[in-house]
Design a protein around this nucleic acid. Structure first.
Length: 272
DNA sequence: AAACCTCCCTGGGGGC
DNA sequence: TGCCCCCAGGGAGGTT
């Protein structure tokens, strides 16, 4: 499941190979992703040089002089660099063919991903403009930010943390992990958590995302880095998917529950 | 406004 | 072996 670390792993993998390359053509085999892949992409991207590969939240942005490709991996997507002649598989929906004989290939079995094209500043795009701060941006994300934003909120702290208006890029896996590391029970009302505890939570978010990026992301089923290799962070998960197994700190069996329609895992001893 | 619900999609796994 | 049903999940968009 691509969360921020998986998208960042992908960005780092493709950036050196893609930056400065010219797009030869765009092949769209399946236009029906989360939103239809716009025809303007096939019309306007070919001939353009890719000037930058950046990330905002879980969106990858390929910048050119003429516009920006906005890419989202959804829940099951991966983006790999392959020889352009490599036969496409069933769920290989879009190829961006480069001038060196390689292609950026989007595979996304569940088709929750997106490939969009915008001619104007992507930061002002409807999908990006209302997003909260980047978790790895020390200037805008810290415990004080979480504390301030959560005042008066009665929703659970886990749901609050996964809301992209609070902070971007923290999906279900890393929300579970960060709350464990901070010793906070996921179901507690966001507005009732103290400033010091939010400082610990912000630190845990930064730590777990950093660890996951260092491990190349988490591969549960579909995620592959741009070179086709899986991420190895799944082996380091402390609570996610570990219902009934011993807590890595105290040995108490991990509990599973649901919050906001999402599977939730916590240690009843370590998290209060 | 905040909080909750629904929907998009496919493959894998469990039950029978 | 095969069928059916449920579940996973990001996040926009709608409803209460």
């Amino acid at each position: 499941m691509p969360e921020l670390p998986e998208v960042e792993t992908t960005r780092r993998g493709i950036a050196p190979h893609v930056t400065g390359r010219r797009v030869e053509k765009v092949i769209v085999r399946q236009r029906g992703l989360r939103w239809p892949v716009p025809v303007a992409l096939d019309r306007e991207l070919p001939g353009q040089a890719i000037a930058s590969v950046s990330r905002r939240a879980k969106y990858l942005l390929l910048g050119t002089d003429r516009g920006t490709v906005i890419l989202h991996l959804g829940m099951s997507g991966n983006l790999r660099l392959v020889p352009a002649t490599e036969p496409s598989g069933k769920h290989d929906h879009v190829d961006i063919v480069l001038d060196d004989g390689r292609a950026l290939r989007l595979r996304d079995p569940r088709r929750f991903g997106a490939v969009l094209w915008t001619r104007s500043d992507p930061a002002g795009h409807q999908l990006l403009r209302d997003l909260g701060p980047e978790p790895l941006d020390e200037e805008h994300f810290d415990g004080g930010h979480l504390f301030q934003r959560s005042r008066g909120r009665r929703q659970s702290v886990k749901t609050f943390l996964m809301d992209s208006h609070t902070v971007v890029g923290v999906g279900n896996i890393y929300a579970n992990e960060a709350l464990f590391m901070a010793g906070i029970r996921p179901g507690i009302a966001a507005g009732r958590i103290s400033r010091p505890r939010y400082r610990r939570l912000a630190e845990a978010v930064v730590q777990v995302l950093g660890e996951a990026i260092a491990a190349g992301g988490t591969t549960l089923r579909d995620f592959l880095a741009s070179d086709g290799r899986p991420g190895y962070f799944a082996q380091q998960l402390r609570v996610y998917g570990r219902a009934g197994l011993p807590c890595p700190v105290c040995g108490t069996p991990i509990r599973a529950t649901r919050l906001g329609q999402r599977s939730t895992f916590y240690c009843p001893q370590c998290q209060r």
